[in-house]
Amino acid sequence: MTVTSTGTATVSASGLTLRYGGTAVLDDVSLRLQEGITGLLGPNGAGKTTLLRVLATAVPADRGAFTALGHDPGTAAGRLTLRRALGYLPQNPGFHPDFTAFAFVDYVAILKELTDRAARHREVRRVLEEVDLADVRGKRIKRLSGGMRQRVALAAALVGDPRLLVLDEPTAGLDPEQRMRFRDLVTRAGQGRTVLLSTHQTEDVAMLCHRVIVLARGRVRFEGTPAELTARAAGRVWSSPERDPGARAGWRTATGAFRNVGDPPEGADLLEPTLEDGYLLTLDDTGTEAAR
């Protein structure tokens, strides 16, 4: 299903298809992004990272096209202009371990064509302060915690004040406290920018995003607001003492009762749906194994 968006699209993709060998990793993907944070939800293997790489101009699609911030990355000039306005945090950002946080962000700033030393260093200071890492700027990256490294990578993505931020599972592997802190940073970073945030955690989407896209088996299965995704599960979530064999998915909750999603039986004890319920039902509707 595609929910028509009324806002102005900053990124617009149509028919993106990419095959590796015989497998379509992206299969006719069309989407629109607006200013603000859009969550990209999907199970492992859904094609999220590949889609982000295409939108970040790291790999070209076999078919289809997209424009971002008014630029066409299909041309060398458009790609260069877009890259100047792009911040990208890959799924597994690599670091030169002997670099300090400052040196690493400085290095990325050079890659972003900030060649004037004084101006570049001012920018590095600015982004490190933006991610609350000013105090550890002189520490070697190998001595920083996982959460701090992720913030260093976010700082690198923020160099040059990009208008489009592409973040690939930035909260993966972080403990709850680090995750909350990172979410706060992303919320701040999302102001006045277009942010596409890939995650497989519905909490990230519920707390951060004003729009959400669900990707499964390389195809867009839902595009709309988190409230609209949640609404998909309205009247389709119920509680029972044991797992309901008729449910599409069910799991025991902290109270000991089972939470079931699917088509409830007559007289079922209906529950208020959550974003996760809507997400699971969307996956199940597409036959995705992860929903079961």
């Binding site: 790291a58 890259r83 100047r84 670091f95 890659l111 972003k112 064509e113």
Partner: peptide
């Protein structure tokens, strides 16, 4: 061996120059 390879590719600096 270059841990920042993916970041370098999408940076505006031309890959060939690097």
């Amino acid at each position: 061996l270059d841990p920042t390879y993916e970041m370098a590719v999408v940076a505006p600096m031309h890959g060939f120059r690097l």
